[in-house]
Amino acid sequence: MQDYNTIIGAIQMRLNKCPTRSVMDRFRIGSSTLNLIMSRYKALELTIDELEAMSPKEVENLFYPQKNLQRKEVPLPDFQYYYDRIHAPNSRVNISFCWLDYKEKNPDGYEKSQFYEYYQRFVQENYGGTKISMAVNRKPGEKMYIDWVGDQPGLLTDVTTGEIMRVHIFATTLGVSSMIYAEAFPNEKLPCFIEGCVHAVSFYGAVAKHFVPDNLKTAVTKHTKDDLVL
């Protein structure tokens, strides 16, 4: 099952005539998954605007109906029980152990991939998701994070030829306030990078103690587990 962003994003890219390989690389999906999404999109006979007007859960259920996943002759596992075991204090139980426990009690029950799929749905619907992140302590004004946005949209028009040109989006954000500065450039070369940093500092009205670039070629010369050269 793919999430809302993957479903909508893949459809939009294919409608915009993006190559299949680009879509697969962008969302890290295989050709069979992409073909499934597009075939179900055509079968639904809905426009992309109509899909975007729906809630994420409605779209996901349209493309991956619950009835297609569930085997009626096999009862669903007690996911609340397994969730409580996984999250109990000092618990060493994980989802793999839960599946083994379930299969021991239900030899003809769901296989691992189906069990995981249902568990993820249960957590998403009842607890908002399975992703866990750790809070990071930040100091005001200490760091400005810098990166080039992955997508390169066609935003500029050549007034002479009418050609649509792609732009490279330079983006920065401050660690505490999450204030963002973004600017479009014709390329990602060093002069544009430096100009973007200067404009960002001017926009913020202050200079952060540290500039923290992501692993972008403009700012990082070498990055290995043992060495980092900016």
Rank of each mutant, 00 (worst) to 15 (best):
I164A: 12
A10Q: 00
H87F: 08
G109W: 05
S177D: 04
L36G: 09
M13C: 00
A53W: 03
V176M: 05
V176Y: 01
K217G: 08
A208C: 08
L156S: 11
P186T: 06
L230W: 09
A208V: 10
M1V: 09
Y127C: 04
C98F: 03
V198C: 13
E58K: 05
V167D: 03
L230S: 08
S202H: 11
C197V: 09
N187A: 02
G154K: 06
L15C: 02
K225L: 11
E125N: 09
A43P: 12
L44A: 12
T160P: 02
V74W: 12
M38G: 01
S113M: 14
I86N: 01
E104D: 12
F170L: 06
P89D: 13
Q152P: 15
Y116I: 08
Y4V: 00
Q152N: 10
M24F: 05
N94F: 06
E111T: 15
S39R: 13
W148S: 01
M24E: 09
D25V: 02
E60C: 02
S133P: 10
T173H: 07
T157W: 05
R138L: 14
I8W: 00
G150W: 09
A206Y: 14
F63S: 02
G9P: 00
Y116H: 11
L15G: 02
K131L: 15
F115L: 04
A135S: 15
A182P: 12
E111I: 15
L228S: 10
F63I: 01
